[in-house]
């Protein structure tokens, strides 16, 4: 057995005519935060359901903690924590009752594993008698995370824990994940937010059931195949239109107040791009070379 906390080899899964996972292979090391980055419908949840032994793969094999997801499913279930995309909380139970319920299901108590959840639970403990349905989104998320951790799992699966969560709460959530990792837990987390990729140790980009890139965020970013420029100033949608018309431009996309222009080696440089803008009557713009981000890479690979 290698160092892999999770090993996935050639996994495929179809639902009727829809190929949800297409020959997926990944290896996730012990104690790392591994991010599965991709939009809705990419196959993230299907892969999570196979790894958490809730669905059988059509082809391929996978192990979690060295155990086979088909043969050793019951042992896996005891040793993992799973936070599905939709909060798996009992709305009519209080904060403390939810936590107690999950602890009991796994044959343990809150007290026995209090150390594991202390950091997060202490933030919601003052609401221990409040029903789950009356919690704010951020508090629900913290409670769900406590419930997934209360039996001290060795691997934690988080399926889109930050979807629909505001930018500030998302940042807090990732800080919590960092602290959980320090306790030795392997974390596999999925997200549609590209900006969260940089917070993972390693990531896989997934689209249409296929892994289109994998590595550390730095490796992915440094593998960007073209030159990239940022154009700023004036009207974003005007800039987009003009630069898309410049010969040799592969792709031109809005990035907040910038427009990222992807150009192959030997293609137009910043001077040519700036001139095109000026000729279209857009003065006061700037164009400068930049390094690609994860979202640039995702678009280039998709």
């Amino acid at each position: 057995m290698g160092n892999g906390a999770i090993e996935i080899l050639g996994v495929s899964k179809s639902y009727g005519k829809t190929l949800a996972l297409d020959n997926v292979s990944l290896e996730i090391s012990k104690g790392e935060i591994f991010g599965l980055i991709g939009p809705d419908g990419a196959g993230k949840t299907s892969l999570f359901r196979i790894l958490t032994t809730l669905t059988l793969p059509d082809a391929g094999t996978a192990t979690v903690g060295g155990r086979d997801v088909v043969r050793d499913y019951s042992a896996i279930r005891c040793s993992i924590g799973y936070m599905p995309g939709h909060f798996a909380l009992y709305q009519d139970l209080s904060v403390e009752e939810n936590l107690k319920f999950y602890a009991t299901v796994f044959g343990t108590t809150i007290e026995e594993n209090y150390d594991t959840i202390r950091d997060i639970y202490s933030q919601i403990e003052m609401f221990r008698d409040r029903r789950a349905r009356d919690l704010s989104g951020g508090m629900k998320q913290k409670l769900a995370l406590c419930c997934a951790l209360v039996h001290k799992p060795s691997v934690l699966f988080l399926d889109e824990p930050t979807t629909g969560v505001d930018a500030v709460s998302r940042r807090e959530f990732w800080a919590m994940l960092g602290r959980i990792r320090e306790s030795g837990v392997t974390i596999m987390v999925s997200t549609p937010y590209m900006d969260e990729a940089g917070l993972c140790d390693r990531i896989a980009l997934i689209l249409g059931g296929r892994i289109i890139g994998t590595g550390t965020p730095e490796e992915i970013v440094s593998g960007y195949p073209e030159r990239l420029y940022a154009a700023r100033g004036g009207n974003m949608f005007g800039i987009l239109k003009v630069l898309r018309g410049v010969e040799g431009v592969t792709r031109c996309s809005s990035f907040g107040c910038e427009c990222h222009v992807s150009v192959p080696e030997g293609g137009p440089d910043e001077k040519v791009l700036l001139r095109a803008l000026a000729e279209a009557g857009m003065t006061g713009c700037s164009v400068e070379p930049i390094k690609a981000g994860i979202e640039d890479c995702f678009m280039s690979l998709s």
């Binding site: 991709g38 939009p39 809705d40 990419a42 889109e160 979807t163 629909g164 969560v165 505001d166 930018a167 549609p192 590209m194 689209l207 949608f237 987009l240 996309s253 809005s254 979202e295 995702f298 678009m299 998709s302």
Partner: peptide, 30 residues
């Protein structure tokens, strides 16, 4: 929400088009 980067950007261009034709757009986003 949850839409891939390319589709998300294309959609904003659609929004922009509509607004430039006089439709008022009231939008929430994360």
């Amino acid at each position: 929400g949850g839409v891939d980067p390319v589709t998300r950007r294309n959609f904003w261009e659609t929004i922009y088009d509509a607004a430039s034709k006089g439709v008022t757009v009231f939008v929430t986003t994360h």
